[in-house]
Each structure stands twice: as structure tokens, then as C-alpha cells.
């Protein structure tokens, strides 16, 4: 509930037609760099950040994020390090932070313990791409109890009926993946996408976030008026790889307005 209110309040601010959510792989290339990148993002107006706790089997991710997960783990980063970093970010910045990871990380940590700590820190939502609601009854119950939004996913392959079912479990916002496939490749926005996003809008009253392959000002302009949040993932990872953390600020600034 709190996450949805935050999003709606942000959207009411003048000249905010669309919000930005960015993605960070924790520990890639280091927490130091993560810290710097997040600072740049926050300074340039990002409203939400999903922090990915690395996993050895990132099944839903594309090559860039797969490699980032792997290299992060090779530095020896632990889940405890990621949690401590999440706590620090929530305490430092006045925006919304979510954890994104695969279910095994939470399962091994202890599902309730993970919720309790995250709530303490001020984390607002969880995105778990390999946990459909059918398998996540305990998880969804705890999400209610701890008031952390379980972010569910709409895909172009989701039927209207499925979208409604997902809506009955979801909270905060709906994460609409712009196309089939894994993270990373470019998305072509066309009439097929418009039809899909129209179906998403009809199926839920929650704000809509659109992610996968969004990397430019043109993409964000296209999404404005159609979606409520544009999600930037692989694009900033590539940017940091190629040009360093300081390139992130100007890039984010240039996406809107």
C-alpha cells in the first residue's frame, strides 16, 4: 500500500508524467561503485531503485546481467553484505528501494527473516521473477503481514484472465515486461506493444512499470502517458562498464523532461 501511495504522490508532482526505476546488481563491480551510481541516480531524480541480490542461477536474465551476477559473486559478496548495503541505502536516500532476486536466496535466508529485516530497513517491495503466486502463498502472506509489496509480472503472453488473477495478488505496482525474452536486448515499441499495455491497464488499477530493453530518451518519451514507471536495467550497467559511474547522472537526467 505504501509503495503505491508513494508512486501516486510522485506522479502528482508537477512535470512528472512518468517515474524512473533503475536496476543495480549489488556487488557489481563493487559496493563502492554501487554507492556512487546510486548517488548519481538519486541526484538526478530517480524515484525507485531495484537492488538485485546476485544469484548463481539468474535464469530470467540476459548476458549482461548474468555476467554481472557472476562477477559480483566472484568478489565474494554475501547476502548479508547485500542486506547491510540495502539498509544503508534506505537510511541515506529518500527514495523507494526494492530488492530483486531469485527465490532461493530468500528461501535459504529464511523467508520471514528476510521480510522482517527488509521491513526494518525500509525496503518497499520485492521482485522475484521465479516465484509465481501459485508457489508463493507463504511469501504473499508475509508480504501482507510486513507491508512489503510483492511485485508481480505481466508478460505479453499473459492472457486477460491471467492478468486479473495476478492483480488479485499484487501490490505496489505491476511490472510489465515489454517483450518476451530475457533482460538486455532492445525492445521495439509498436502497435502490438500499445495493444498489450492497453490490456495491462484494463486488468489492474495498480501503477504500471514497463521494463526490458529500455535505454533511451525516445523509449521514455514513448512510454509517457502509457505507463507510470519506466525501468532502466541493462543500459546503466553497460554505461558504467564503458564510461564509469560518473556517466550515469547525465544519462538519467537526459531521459526525461
Amino acid at each position: 500500500m505504501q509503495l503505491e501511495q508513494y508512486i501516486k504522490a510522485e506522479l502528482e508532482k508537477p512535470e512528472k508524467d512518468i517515474l524512473l526505476m533503475t536496476h543495480i546488481v549489488l556487488g557489481y563491480p563493487s559496493l563502492e561503485v554501487n554507492r556512487e551510481v546510486i548517488q548519481q541516480m538519486v541526484d538526478n531524480g530517480v524515484e525507485l531503485i531495484e537492488m538485485q541480490i546476485p544469484f548463481s542461477e539468474p535464469m530470467a536474465d540476459g548476458p549482461t546481467i548474468v555476467q554481472a551476477n557472476q562477477e559480483a559473486l566472484e568478489t565474494g559478496i554475501s547476502v548479508a553484505d547485500c542486506m547491510a548495503f540495502g539498509k544503508e541505502m534506505c537510511a541515506t536516500h529518500d527514495i523507494s528501494f526494492l530488492f530483486m532476486t531469485y527465490y532461493n536466496i530468500i528461501y535459504k535466508y529464511g523467508v520471514e527473516n528476510f521480510f522482517r529485516k527488509s521491513k526494518d530497513y525500509g525496503i518497499t517491495g520485492f521482485i522475484i521473477p521465479d516465484l509465481p503466486p501459485e508457489e508463493g502463498q507463504e511469501f504473499l502472506g508475509l508480504a501482507k503481514k510486513y507491508e512489503i509489496s510483492p511485485i508481480l509480472i505481466y508478460a505479453p503472453t499473459s492472457t486477460d484472465e491471467r492478468m486479473q488473477t495476478l492483480d488479485s495478488y499484487a501490490d505496489g505496482f505491476m511490472y510489465c515486461i515489454a517483450r518476451k525474452g530475457v533482460t538486455g536486448q532492445q525492445t521495439d515499441f509498436d502497435t502490438e506493444f500499445d495493444h498489450y499495455i492497453g490490456r495491462c491497464r484494463a486488468a489492474t488499477n495498480l501503477p504500471l512499470a514497463v521494463g526490458f530493453g529500455i535505454s533511451s530518451r525516445e523509449d521514455i518519451t514513448y512510454l509517457t502517458g502509457k505507463a507510470d514507471i519506466g525501468v532502466i536495467g541493462t543500459a546503466t550497467i553497460n554505461l558504467v562498464n564503458n564510461e564509469g559511474a560518473t556517466a550515469v547522472g547525465p544519462f538519467i537526467k537526459g531521459l526525461r523532461g
Binding site: M59, Y103, P129, D130, P132, E134, E135, L152, T157, S158
Partner: peptide
């Protein structure tokens, strides 16, 4: 179980 990404539901 079936811990599958949503895109494969159908």
C-alpha cells in the same frame, strides 16, 4: 513444484 517465470505461464 513449478517455479517458472510468468512469461511461460501459458
Amino acid at each position: 513444484g513449478a517455479f517458472i517465470p510468468e512469461v511461460l505461464f501459458e
